[in-house]
Design a binder for these strands. Structure first.
Lengths: 217, 217
DNA sequence: ATGGAAAATATCGTATACAAAAATAACATG
DNA sequence: CATGTTATTTTTGTATACGATATTTTCCAT
């Protein structure tokens, strides 16, 4: 819990966008937000600035600030980029990973396995994040790692949903094993290919899910 | 020239970082920046927020805001990512480009050629940007296009330098032709490969340049 | 009714003031 | 001399007020 009002507002609005309380196109009025969060306009402005910066809102010059929830199309686009970045991380990791990191990676995959056996999807979720995090660190490109993390965060709320899909967890685990195998044998191309696939499958699942939820166009 | 003080400060500091007037680690004191730019602290804070957001500064909780110029290593890392994104754009464009866009692309390359003949490196620079911009638009993934643009902007000041290197312009032009050829024949893999190469060469040139300028470690 | 001018209104950016928190300095005590 | 305590000063974060500018609304003339 941050003591900063600006951060509170930022997180709060972000949360409300994620949960759908604030729908796409909803107006983010500085004054009413200030009232709602019991703060002045100053921290609200900072929060809005950050929201715009992270692509969750749009600023139209003298008309106001509006929620810009990613459209279905944009989500697919983001997954497309995510799979590229994830693939790149894996490809580089296959070439650059250290022995210790490889061991850590295998350890994490085992912990994912345990989580599945215990049927603990929350634990699986966390270990899964750590697994990928480990690959990012091993890619030897800090900038790439940070960009990938950032995009992951943006897709996170949706990904969380997917992993609850029946059977997804164990399939995901198999894919992890394939990735490890490719990295272990320094097969960069294979690591790239499998990782892309791993993300794109999630994108497709997401696709299915949305198609199921939204009956509209 | 923007009428916004916050933007002026943002651009100003950014410029001073690029030109080296503000060195890595320099403290960005709110009060003194406010004095220097003849504004109050409020717009300065907004500017700093944006600087941090775009990775040019770091915020250490109660100690202040500091310039974080990308290190040599980070620059290389950024180029590595840039080449991946640029390659992805080209790969997708090879599959998705429309006839009109292809014509526009060829037109732009011709204009680049003209700029070289006229020995107008500024014009070449602008047309070169448009050329790549055209590929981004043609990739059919708006999110990717925006990310790539954003990274391009971050590397821009350095790239501008490179293109003044003797002979680089005409070599760059040849590479453009190769990219167009690959896209025209819908050879996604080739487009990808050539585009990556195109960026990485710039990274290497940048490397040479820096090695020349910096005598230190 | 419609086009347009003028008033009313909303929004935005900035300045300034104030309060809280933390770092630094000064100081006292063991 | 070290250490812990208190005071001072900086730095931050937030509130509020004000002016400028754009937008919407109202109202009038045609």
């Amino acid at each position: 819990m941050s003591s900063r009002a600006a951060t509170r507002v930022f997180q709060g609005v972000k949360e409300q966008i994620a949960t759908g309380q604030l729908k796409d196109g909803a107006k983010l009025d500085e004054t009413s937000l200030a009232e709602r969060f019991q703060v002045s306009r100053t921290p609200v402005r900072e929060a809005l600035l950050q929201l715009v910066g992270s692509g969750l809102a749009t600023q139209i010059p003298k008309r106001g600030c509006f929620v810009k929830a990613p459209s279905f199309r944009e989500m697919i686009e983001m997954f497309e980029v995510m799979s590229e970045l994830e693939g790149m991380c894996a490809r580089l990791a296959a070439r650059r990973i250290s022995d210790e990191q490889l061991i850590a990676l295998e350890q994490l995959n085992k912990e994912c396995e345990n989580a599945i056996e215990a049927n603990d999807s929350d634990l699986y979720y966390r270990k899964n994040v750590e697994f990928h995090e480990c690959i990012y660190s091993a890619c030897g490109n800090g900038f790439l790692a940070e960009e990938t993390r950032s995009l992951r965060r943006r897709l996170q709320s949706f990904r969380r949903l997917q992993l609850r899909v029946r059977g997804r967890m164990s399939q995901s685990l198999d894919e992890h094993s394939e990735i490890i195998e490719a990295i272990r044998s320094s097969d960069a191309d294979q690591a790239d290919r499998v990782s892309r696939q791993h993300v794109m499958i999630q994108g497709e699942r997401f696709n299915d899910l949305l198609a199921h939820i939204e009956q509209g166009p």
